[in-house]
Design a protein around this nucleic acid. Sequence first.
DNA 1: CGCGATAATGCCTTATCGGCATGAGCCGAT
DNA 2: ATCGGCTCATGCCGATAAGGCATTATCGCG
Lengths: 305, 305
Amino acid sequence: MVTFDRRWLPLNALRAFDAVGRHLSFTAAAHALGVSQSAVSRHVIGLEELLGHALFERRPQSLVLTKAGGALLPTVRGSFDRIEHALNDVVRDGGGLRTLRLQLPPSFAQKLALPILQAFRKDFPDIFIDFSSLGITGAPRTETDVAVIYDRPRTGEAVSDLLWMSRVTPGCSPALAAAHQGKTLERFIADNELLHVKLEGEPPGIIWQAFSRHFGLGVRTSRGLAFDTAALAAQYAASGEGVALLDRDLFATDIAAGTLVTPFAETFEDGYGYFLHLSADDLADPVIAVFRGWMIRNFARGVPS
Amino acid sequence: MVTFDRRWLPLNALRAFDAVGRHLSFTAAAHALGVSQSAVSRHVIGLEELLGHALFERRPQSLVLTKAGGALLPTVRGSFDRIEHALNDVVRDGGGLRTLRLQLPPSFAQKLALPILQAFRKDFPDIFIDFSSLGITGAPRTETDVAVIYDRPRTGEAVSDLLWMSRVTPGCSPALAAAHQGKTLERFIADNELLHVKLEGEPPGIIWQAFSRHFGLGVRTSRGLAFDTAALAAQYAASGEGVALLDRDLFATDIAAGTLVTPFAETFEDGYGYFLHLSADDLADPVIAVFRGWMIRNFARGVPS
DNA sequence: CGCGATAATGCCTTATCGGCATGAGCCGAT
DNA sequence: ATCGGCTCATGCCGATAAGGCATTATCGCG
């Protein structure tokens, strides 16, 4: 029995096999490869002898893959596809700056884009990040490689990696907190304007409602103002005009800087989180895989700032 | 400028490039490939001319990849790795039965393993599933391709695909439900034994506690019995000895059969879910990718039965 | 039954691949 | 400085595998 290693990969034969598997015809494959039918025939036969298994079942009218052929073909085809693309990429731009298109939700972009992009560029100066913002929820809109989305865990064939689960707590300006010093959480909320963040497909106020229900607060939550993004709500809260439910990690810098305060210990996991979202096929692209790994590792050490 | 297609993939040159990239030395690469240094040198030079970009920077003492080389190498190496493995797989067993090792949590295995395995085997008769349960006592099998785990959404480099989020509701035997006919949810829970499922890293009773808090029930939840698996708790509940929080999807067949009833409309999403868990690298294996896609598509149409 | 498909095969040509020997830089030790 | 040892590049040549052409075998179809 032969075992294969790098020194002896029957590459030309594999290319012939790939073409035949694609066209399911020796003649057509030969034509596609620009060689004669006999050459292709030889290659495939040689490969079959090497493997000790037939790759195609020759039928009078048609050619069909054997189990062995079926097992081999997807790998071979995928590999050649990737090599082909990689070669053309290099020819085109010398592999100089691979650009990775990234979409971020607005609040995330506003708070974290800079530290992330700077840190990533430091580690991978040759990967150019073309980044754009998108709506707060939902799937990425345009052609993009990787997107961060704010969503609940969802099913789907796309690869979806959790960066962190959102954990919210009431936040407001220091002045407002001081003015209501000593009040209970329930009283504090009842006495102040509530700032909501709109979420696609959810009724407004749902997060405040879930929050108050979770902590058993008897307050009416369907009042106040609603904003498109968390960052806007936070900004409004910082001006002293109300209290918003803030993601502690997302607004860590504001809290540290003192422009926002979180007077209560109660934090609530609302089932939403920030996910890195990309197509399963794209994971085969080393640049995208590298970026994914880098993001996951970085956020595992806590949300950057 | 040349553009590459299948007909002119310089495969032998790429193999040489891969080896040189691995060893960062023409001589060492030549030795590893079992050919002379000159052959390797020619190949790399030829490839560089084809691409119009240098792949290595020749320095007196050392060889370093150029940007173009760095962009190309991971793809080429990964592709050859996969081809090498695929070829050896075929040699070994003719690609006949690719076996995929699958691990399932006990309750999941008990309720869903059969329908899933049967349906999958019908669609892919050539993939043999070697499935094992994450037994309570069973030694954790590290050698596995894909696992279903019951967990909260977590961060990590492994690819984690949500199958469905757990949604629980009180369930008990029909007799017990009849005996307490007409009671409110609060009363019903207060008057019956509570059956818990133990979760690693969580205090016992946490789900009942979250459930009652979510619906504003004033009942004590830290009482009753705790079980290792949801299936055990459900079985106990079916015997009429208490009320358990059941995942509606997981126990759909029991509910349909009437051995368990869920007398209340209140369902609660507890933040846990069933995830398909696999290594990011493994996604390059067509068999594993196929299984992943199949599972995701199937569960998207609802939990099988 | 012959015609038109297909893939397999024998024979021959070719050019790709690779080996050997050598050359050209560069480094460090004597 | 010079020489030996190391690296990769190159000229030349031979082996061989890759491929072309023409033919054969097999099957389906009109």
